[in-house]
Computed example of a mutant assay.
Amino acid sequence: MANSYFYKIQNYLLELDFDIQHQDETNNLLVVSKPELGIEHLVLGCGEPLLILEQYLLELPTPSCDIYQRLLQKNRDIIHGAFVLDETGRKVIFRDTLQLEHLDRPELEAVFNSLGLLLSEFSDELIAFSKSGSEDA
C-alpha cells in the first residue's frame, strides 16, 4: 500500500514542478528541489501511515540557548512544519508529517509554501546562526 502512496506523492511533485533529484521506490523515499522556493534536497519518506518531510537547513557552529529560544519562537509562526534539531543538537532541520490516507495535492502544496515563506522571511537570521552561532547572531 505504501508504494501506491509513493506514486501518488511522486505525481503531486511533478504536477507542482518539483525537480525530483532522487527516488528510491524500495524505501519509499524521494529527494526534491524547487530553487525558486528555496527548497533544496527536501527528503520525503512515505512511511505508512505518514508522509515525513525533512530539509536540512544549517549546522550551528556553537549552539546557544538564545538560538534555540529564537528557533522555538519562530516555530509559533510556521503554518506547517517546524524547526527540529538532530540528535547532536547542532543540525537545524525543517520537518513536517502528514497523514497519507487523506493527503491531497493542496495540503502537500501548503507545506511547500509554508517552507518557502519561512525560508524567505527568516533566511537572514538562519544565515547569521550558521556563521556565528553566538548570542549576537
Results as ranks from 00 to 15, higher is better:
residue 57 L to D: 01
residue 10 Q to Y: 15
residue 50 L to G: 00
residue 113 N to S: 10
residue 72 L to T: 00
residue 15 E to Q: 15
residue 65 C to Q: 09
residue 74 K to N: 06
residue 51 L to W: 00
residue 108 L to V: 12
residue 95 R to W: 04
residue 97 T to K: 06
residue 8 K to L: 08
residue 61 P to N: 06
residue 120 S to G: 09
residue 129 F to I: 03
residue 76 R to A: 04
residue 31 V to P: 06
residue 113 N to P: 02
residue 46 C to I: 01
residue 134 S to F: 01
residue 111 V to H: 12
residue 17 D to E: 06
residue 16 L to K: 10
residue 112 F to T: 02
residue 104 D to W: 02
residue 73 Q to V: 04
residue 28 N to Q: 13
residue 47 G to E: 03
residue 10 Q to F: 15
residue 22 H to L: 12
residue 6 F to M: 04
residue 46 C to K: 00
residue 130 S to K: 05
residue 29 L to R: 01
residue 115 L to I: 04
residue 37 L to V: 07
residue 135 E to G: 08
residue 65 C to T: 11
residue 33 S to N: 03
residue 56 Y to N: 13
residue 62 T to H: 14
residue 33 S to G: 03
residue 90 R to K: 15
residue 13 L to R: 02
residue 98 L to N: 02
residue 16 L to D: 10
residue 16 L to I: 13
residue 63 P to H: 06
residue 4 S to C: 08
residue 37 L to F: 14
residue 131 K to T: 13
residue 96 D to P: 03
residue 57 L to M: 06
residue 113 N to W: 06
residue 45 G to N: 05
residue 91 K to C: 05
residue 122 F to V: 02
residue 68 Y to S: 03
residue 86 D to M: 10
residue 134 S to N: 10
residue 44 L to E: 06
residue 134 S to Q: 08
residue 55 Q to C: 04
residue 47 G to F: 05
residue 79 I to H: 07
residue 43 V to C: 07
residue 78 I to A: 08
residue 7 Y to L: 07
residue 115 L to C: 04
residue 92 V to K: 07
residue 66 D to C: 03
residue 102 H to C: 06
residue 53 L to M: 15
residue 77 D to K: 15
residue 14 L to W: 01
residue 124 D to I: 02
residue 35 P to I: 12
residue 80 H to A: 11
residue 67 I to C: 01
residue 8 K to V: 02
residue 13 L to H: 08
residue 50 L to D: 08
residue 44 L to A: 13
residue 83 F to V: 08
residue 95 R to T: 04
residue 75 N to H: 13
residue 1 M to I: 11
residue 58 L to W: 11
residue 54 E to I: 05
residue 81 G to A: 10
residue 109 E to H: 14
residue 42 L to M: 15
residue 90 R to Y: 08
residue 54 E to C: 07
residue 18 F to S: 14
residue 72 L to N: 10
residue 106 P to L: 10
residue 101 E to Y: 09
residue 86 D to C: 10
residue 25 E to N: 12
residue 58 L to K: 07
residue 19 D to Q: 09
residue 40 E to M: 14
residue 70 R to V: 01
residue 135 E to I: 15
